[in-house]
Simulated scan of single mutants.
Amino acid sequence: MDPFIQSHFENLEAKNKEVQYEAFNHILEAIKNKVDWSYDVWDQLVNWLTDPDNHRRSRAAQFLAGLAISDPEQRMLNDFLALWEVTKDPKFVTARHALQSIWKVGLAGQKQKTMVIDHFTDRFKNGTNEKNYTLIRYDMIQGLKNLYDAVKDEQIKQKAMELIELEEDSKYRKKYLSVWK
Rank of each mutant, 00 (worst) to 15 (best):
M1C: 04
F4V: 13
I5L: 14
Q6K: 10
S7T: 13
S7R: 14
S7P: 00
F9V: 14
E10C: 08
N11W: 08
L12D: 13
E13T: 06
A14D: 15
N16L: 05
K17I: 09
V19A: 09
V19G: 01
Q20N: 15
E22M: 11
A23N: 13
F24W: 14
H26W: 10
H26S: 15
I27S: 06
L28Q: 07
E29I: 02
K32Y: 00
N33R: 01
D36G: 05
W37L: 07
S38L: 07
Y39K: 07
Y39T: 03
D40H: 10
V41K: 08
W42G: 09
D43N: 14
D43H: 10
Q44R: 15
N47P: 06
W48E: 14
L49I: 12
L49K: 11
T50D: 14
T50Q: 15
P52V: 09
N54I: 10
N54G: 07
H55N: 13
H55P: 01
R56Y: 13
A60M: 08
A60C: 06
A61V: 12
A61D: 12
A61I: 11
Q62H: 00
G66N: 08
L67A: 03
A68Y: 05
I69Y: 02
D71I: 04
D71F: 03
E73R: 14
E73Q: 14
M76Y: 08
M76E: 08
L77I: 12
N78Q: 15
N78D: 15
N78K: 15
D79F: 01
L81E: 12
L81Y: 08
A82G: 11
T87N: 02
T87W: 02
K88G: 04
K88Q: 12
D89E: 05
D89N: 09
T94D: 03
A95D: 04
A95P: 08
R96C: 02
R96Q: 07
H97V: 00
S101W: 00
S101D: 02
I102F: 03
W103V: 05
W103T: 02
W103S: 08
W103Y: 14
K104M: 11
L107C: 08
A108P: 01
K111G: 00
K111M: 06
K111P: 04
K111Y: 03
Q112N: 04
K113W: 03
T114F: 01
M115R: 11
D118W: 11
F120C: 07
F120H: 06
T121Y: 06
F124K: 07
F124C: 04
N126Q: 12
N129V: 12
K131Q: 13
K131P: 06
Y133L: 08
T134A: 01
R137G: 10
Y138P: 09
I141K: 03
Q142W: 11
L144Q: 07
L147P: 00
Y148G: 11
D149T: 12
V151Y: 02
V151R: 00
K152L: 14
E154P: 05
K157F: 13
K159A: 05
K159Y: 00
M161S: 04
E165P: 00
E167Y: 02
E168P: 00
D169T: 10
D169S: 13
D169F: 09
S170L: 09
Y172N: 03
R173P: 03
R173A: 13
K174I: 04
K174C: 03
K174R: 09
K175A: 06
Y176L: 09
V179R: 09
W180G: 10
K181W: 05
